[in-house]
C-alpha cells in the first residue's frame, strides 16, 4: 500500500473547491431527500393541508409544509375501501414466487455454466443476457398473445412467469459470477472423499449462500417494482401494488393523499430490503460487472 501521508498545502483554489463541494453535497442531499420527505409528509395530510403552498417567491413560508394535523385516514382508507391488503398479497406472491423459481433453477444452471466448457457457451451466455435486456414492452407483445390463448392473463402464475422472463436470466448470469469465484478444488476434494457430484454441489452452496440470499432479494425487488407486466398481464385478477396505485387516478379527481400513502406502502419495504443487501446492490444492479 502506498503511503497516505501526503502534505496538502492550503491554496486558495483548494479552499474554494472544498467550499463548493460541500455546497454541492448539500444541494444533492436536499434534491434526493426532499421528494421522499414530501411523499411521507403528504401521505399524513388531509386534502386541504396537502394543497397548502406559500405565496410565490415567499421562501420564508416553507414552514407551511409541516403545518398540519397528522392523520392516518389515507392509510386506513387504502386498506379498507381500496382493498390494498389483497394487492399487497398479490405483489408478495408474484415477486416471491418468481424470485424462488428464478434463483432455484438459476443457481443450478449458473453452477453448471460456471463449471462446464463446451462449444457455443459464449453464444448461450449471450442469449441469456440479451433475454434480460430486452425491453419489457417488446417482450410483452408476443407474451400477451400467448398468455391470452392459454388463459394466463390476469392470474398470479401468469405474472410469476412474466417476471421470470427478466429474473431468471438475471439470476443465472449473476450467480455464474459467484460460482466462478469458488475454486473447483473444493469439489474435487469432496469427490475424492467420496461425495457424488450432486453432493459436491450442495457442499459449496454455503459458500455462495450470502450472494444467493442477496439476489433473491433483488429478484423480489425487480418483481415488486414492475408496472408494465403487472398492468397488462396481471390486469384483472392479479393486481399488484403499483397497478392498484395507478388506478387511484380517476377521471374526476386524482386522490393524491391516497396515492402518496400507497407510495409509502410500496416503497418503504423495498428501501429496507435495499439496506439489507447494501453490499451486493451495485453488483446486482450492474449485472455483476462492477463489484464494490
Amino acid at each position: 500500500m502506498a503511503s497516505r501521508e501526503i502534505v496538502r498545502y492550503r491554496s486558495p483554489l483548494r479552499t474554494a473547491l472544498q467550499g463548493l463541494s460541500i455546497l454541492f453535497l448539500i444541494f444533492f442531499f436536499v434534491w434526493t431527500v426532499l421528494p421522499l420527505l414530501i411523499m411521507v409528509v403528504s401521505s399524513f395530510k388531509d386534502l386541504l393541508d396537502a394543497f397548502q403552498l406559500p405565496e410565490v417567491g415567499d421562501f420564508g413560508g416553507v414552514g407551511v409544509m409541516f403545518d398540519f394535523k397528522p392523520t392516518g385516514a389515507h392509510y386506513v382508507e387504502l386498506f379498507t375501501e381500496k382493498h390494498f391488503g389483497v394487492y399487497l398479497r398479490n405483489s408478495l406472491i408474484a415477486s416471491l414466487g418468481s424470485a424462488a423459481v428464478s434463483v432455484s433453477l438459476g443457481s443450478m444452471a449458473a453452477y453448471a455454466l460456471s463449471r462446464a466448457e463446451f462449444r457455443g457457451k459464449r453464444d448461450l451466455l449471450f442469449w441469456i443476457i440479451s433475454t434480460r435486456m430486452a425491453p419489457v414492452v417488446a417482450v410483452m407483445v408476443p407474451l400477451y398473445v400467448i398468455f391470452r390463448s392459454s388463459g394466463l392473463v390476469g392470474t398470479l402464475p401468469g405474472l410469476i412467469l412474466a417476471y421470470t422472463t427478466f429474473n431468471l436470466p438475471f439470476a443465472i448470469w449473476i450467480l455464474k459470477g459467484f460460482f466462478d469465484n469458488v475454486p473447483y478444488a473444493i469439489e474435487e476434494a469432496a469427490q475424492c472423499d467420496g461425495c457424488t457430484r450432486w453432493q459436491a454441489f450442495r457442499l459449496i452452496i454455503p459458500l455462495v449462500a450470502p450472494g444467493i440470499g442477496a439476489f433473491i432479494v433483488l429478484c423480489v425487488l425487480f418483481g415488486w417494482n414492475d408496472f408494465l407486466f403487472a398492468s397488462i398481464i396481471g390486469s384483472g385478477g392479479a393486481k399488484t401494488l403499483p397497478v392498484a396505485t395507478a388506478e387511484l387516478v380517476q377521471p374526476v379527481k386524482i386522490q393524491w393523499g391516497m396515492i402518496m400513502a400507497a407510495g409509502v406502502v410500496t416503497t418503504v419495504p423495498m428501501m429496507f430490503l435495499g439496506l439489507l443487501i447494501r453490499r451486493y446492490l451495485v453488483a446486482g444492479l450492474t449485472m455483476g460487472a462492477v463489484r464494490e
Binding site: P35, M39, S42, T245, G263, M271, G274
Partner: peptide, 23 residues
C-alpha cells in the same frame, strides 16, 4: 451519505412518476 442516496433507486418507477407529477 451513500446509504441515503441509495433510497430513490429502490422506489418503483411508477411511484416516482406519481411523486414527481405531484411535485
Amino acid at each position: 451519505l451513500v446509504t441515503i442516496f441509495l433510497m430513490p433507486m429502490m422506489m418503483a418507477p411508477v411511484i416516482a412518476g406519481f411523486l414527481y407529477m405531484f411535485l
